[in-house]
Amino acid sequence: MSGKILVLVASLFLITTPVLAKTESGQLRERIKETLSFGDERKDEREASKAAKLAKLQTIKDERRKALAEKLVTKMCDLPARRAEVFSRHLQSMTNILGRVETKGAGDAAVTAAVAKAETAIADAQAAVDAMAKSDCVVKITGEDEKLGKEVSSSRLALADQFKQVQAKVKTARKAVSDAIRVLARFLGESVPAEVSETPKPTPTPTL
């Protein structure tokens, strides 16, 4: 009897171990990806700037408020670099797509002109993205308790404005690539696809 129980326990252990190992390796991959995405030459400067802003929060007496403010300041200082990474990946995708347009439309003046226009727009957007990635943390904190809420709020609005300006350039680049694809479709005699969306399409909620 005890032998059977031992076999059963061993079987259960063997079944569960691979599942647990898989979740640990998944977490590690996420962590590595997160670390890599922060890597650039101005990381140290940004970290120092963030540390200086966090130091100002040490005067806040309420520990709960202080902890929350530290969390928010950290996020606001980290977000531009992360957002820049996302925008850069999108611009990389646009460049890949535009390469295909250029190849398939080689020799056609209209396609060549549309591709050149899109290339300029992508370069312009990438410059804006790079500037955002290298920019100093927009957070302005004095460390005065009564001003904390307003300062965090205005810092968040400054961040939103920074994102909006760069996004506008990325949108212009995307529209230019969309135009180039449509010009190519006319050249190839394919049905002209609808223009690319301005905003993300809503994801349908699954119904049970």
Partner: peptide, 13 residues
């Protein structure tokens, strides 16, 4: 190509 380009649309943060 347009389908691939559509994948680059996001909420801008």
């Amino acid at each position: 190509m347009m389908g691939a380009l559509e994948k680059t649309v996001d909420d801008g943060g």
